[in-house]
């Protein structure tokens, strides 16, 4: 075993894990916020996430074919694409709730779940159909912006690309913004009140349906932001790309304690780090017996172990309630 190599790549692996983790955290918020309010898993959230990525790539491709992408500074372009992806995913999430979930509010729990799975398939193939007609292709590549690909050497073994830095900064900013919104504003307090007791919240004058729409709006916006950042970071997207990160983000939400917002952030980071370390270290530590392709097995085994010992998730049940 090459200990020096293990140590040398550590910071780089940590960085990769953080980027992946922030991505999962942003997506996980959509699952956990909706679950917190409705106790319902929105299985279509992975498509709401990838829809943001598609809106982003369409804008970038549009700018490029208009011949102005190269001439623009990367920052306003990125902000524009992020905002557009967030808005589109947010609107999609709110519409999905109105059309496919709200009419089933009183139904047994399995029914809206099946509806969500249906929406997930529907959205995958709707995106594929539209892109196939429009571009004659549904595997799309994010146009590169040179400034974002520039790498900065921190030491001789670690370097960070501009886009990695941007992804982390944007994710942090959004997580901080959400945290402030939920914990420091009246609207955020009303969301927490609805999550805890809908009837009591309505007795306060809170319009529960509006808060539920708002929850989908914010969760969708976070998912859309993650979609754009995913495209910028990893480049290639297709209509089915959302599924696996979505599933992992859902796992991250459960790991952190489903329904718990800080839990989703921490769960996302833990899962991202586990995955990155497994990908880089498994083969080194086992002398090549297990390659990087086993990373998911390792990461999910860890998850199962954590959940055996903490079934409510890492941050589940922080508050003990008295009768």
């Amino acid at each position: 075993m090459d200990v020096e190599l293990l140590i040398a790549i550590f910071p780089q692996v940590l960085l990769d894990g953080l980027i992946l983790g922030f991505m999962y955290a942003l997506i996980a918020l959509g699952y956990t916020m909706v679950y917190g309010v409705l106790e319902f898993i929105n299985f279509a959230h992975s498509e709401i996430f990838i829809f943001g990525a598609f809106v982003g790539v369409e804008i970038l491709l549009g700018l490029r074919s208009a011949g102005i992408l190269a001439g623009l500074h990367w920052l306003p372009v990125l902000v524009l694409v992020l905002l557009a992806g967030m808005a589109a995913s947010a609107l999609l999430a709110v519409s999905v709730e109105r059309i496919a979930y709200r009419p089933l509010r009183g139904a047994p729990r399995l029914i809206p779940l099946i509806s969500a799975i249906g929406v997930s398939f529907f959205l995958q193939d709707a995106i594929r159909l539209v892109e196939s007609v429009w571009r004659n292709a549904f595997n799309l590549v994010y146009p590169t912006m040179d400034a974002l690909n520039e790498r900065y050497e921190l030491t001789s073994t670690i370097d960070i690309s501009m886009k990695s830095f941007v992804v982390i900064a944007a994710a942090l900013l959004m997580l901080w913004g959400l945290h402030a919104l939920v914990n420091r504003t009246k609207v955020g307090t009303s969301m927490r009140a609805v999550a805890e007791d809908q009837a009591a919240a309505s007795l306060m004058g809170i319009n529960v349906n509006r808060v539920i729409s708002l929850t989908f709006l914010i969760g969708g916006a976070m998912g859309g932001a993650a979609g754009v950042l995913f495209g910028v970071q990893y480049g290639l997207i297709n209509p089915y790309t959302g599924f696996i990160p979505g599933l992992k983000a859902f796992t991250a939400a459960v790991l952190g304690g489903i329904g718990n917002i800080p839990g989703a952030m921490i769960g996302g980071l833990v899962l991202g780090l586990l995955e990155a370390f497994a990908a880089s270290y498994l083969s080194l530590l086992t002398g090549g017996a297990f390659g990087a392709e086993y990373k998911d097995i390792f990461a999910f085994s860890m998850l199962i172990l954590i959940l055996i010992f903490r079934p409510k998730g890492l941050l589940g049940e922080v508050v003990r309630e008295r009768a």
Partner: peptide
């Protein structure tokens, strides 16, 4: 039916929503 996870102040402010 108070909001167990909210603080006392937050509960009262929800009353004035």
């Amino acid at each position: 039916r108070i909001f167990n996870r909210l603080t006392v102040r937050e509960n009262l402010m929800m009353g004035a929503f």
